[in-house]
């Protein structure tokens, strides 16, 4: 596929934690053509983003849902499990961003390593679901991870299936970066430093020059843009109006988030290329 222009935004409004606020914001994000909505950001996590992702999954259809995960108040076993569930519930629309704020050096990277090892403990084709033969899964595709990092030691296997995306999209924010060589999405920091990632998004404001961004995209300098929302309900329609043309050619694209954004799992990140397949039961 041609390289898509990626439209992304983060929100960190405390009011998003209640359904009366969250529902219209999610609808506005979808209407604006947003590819990724990151819940929370470094220094502003007024809610448990993983929980809100689960709530958003059934009431959205194409929006990529990205959870910020604090490295210091989470455990990779729980995180890997929750993101697996959310990726199934959203049919492959999940992402995550580990926020190092306040955690010891290396803990965020350790979180990433441990969760990846747990997701890799299940093969893409583990499930069989053959009622007639009574065979639910192929046990040879399930492995203990025996992950041992500086902070987390996790035996596994995880009691959750490999996600449909294989690994949820890993987003790294250049303004509070973690040291991972193979993220999927990097948000270019204020100092211009781009995290090592398959795609890099420029952080811009709503009045950014669309033509100039389009040129930078065409020149391969950036792969899209990221907005830091302060009043999501008001700003999302404006994003749709001003920047929607950049993603208009993909508005009907189907498939999971990796397929739509042309983002295969980096070879260095996983022991297998694909996500979990659920056989249709006869």
């Amino acid at each position: 596929m041609t390289r898509p222009f990626i439209l992304s935004a983060s929100l960190a409004e405390a009011a998003f934690a209640v359904p009366q606020s969250a529902a219209p914001i999610l609808q506005a994000a979808e209407a604006a053509g947003l590819d990724l909505l990151m819940m929370g950001r470094s220094g502003a996590r007024p809610f448990d983003a993983q929980v809100l992702l689960a709530w958003a999954a059934p009431i959205t259809t194409r929006l990529g849902l990205v959870a910020t995960v604090p490295a210091s108040n989470a455990h990779p076993f729980h995180v890997a499990r929750a993101l697996s569930a959310i990726d199934f519930l959203s049919a492959g629309r999940t992402g995550w961003s580990v926020i190092p704020e306040g955690s010891p050096d290396g803990m965020a990277e350790d979180m990433v390593g441990a969760a990846r090892a747990l997701w890799d403990g299940w093969g893409s084709d583990t499930l069989i679901l053959d009622k007639a033969r009574g065979r639910y899964l192929d046990a040879s595709k399930v492995r203990a991870s025996n992950y041992e990092g500086p902070f987390f030691k996790v035996a596994g296997p995880l009691n959750a299936m490999r996600p449909p995306l294989g690994h949820p999209l890993l987003v790294v924010d250049g303004d509070d970066p973690i040291d991972v060589a193979d993220a999927d999405i990097g948000l270019i920091g204020a100092d211009g430093a781009a995290p090592a990632a398959t795609r890099r998004l420029a952080k811009v404001s709503l009045d950014a020059d669309v033509a100039a961004l389009s040129n930078r995209f065409a020149a391969g300098e950036i792969d899209g843009v990221h907005f830091t929302l302060t009043d999501a309900l008001a700003q999302l329609p404006e994003i749709g109006t001003r920047f929607g043309s950049l993603v208009a050619d993909r508005i009907d694209a189907t498939g999971d988030l990796r397929a739509r954004l042309g983002l295969p799992i980096p070879q260095t990140a996983s022991n297998q290329p694909g996500g979990a397949v659920v056989p249709e039961n006869a």
């Binding site: 709530w55 009431i59 519930l89 299940w122």
Partner: peptide
């Protein structure tokens, strides 16, 4: 040894229940 004939794995209950809350 992982069993082959029992239904598993179970997905994270908080995620499942929160998604059910939305509907």
């Amino acid at each position: 040894r992982t069993p082959e004939r029992m239904a598993m794995p179970t997905l994270d209950p908080v995620s499942l229940l929160t998604a059910m809350a939305a509907v």
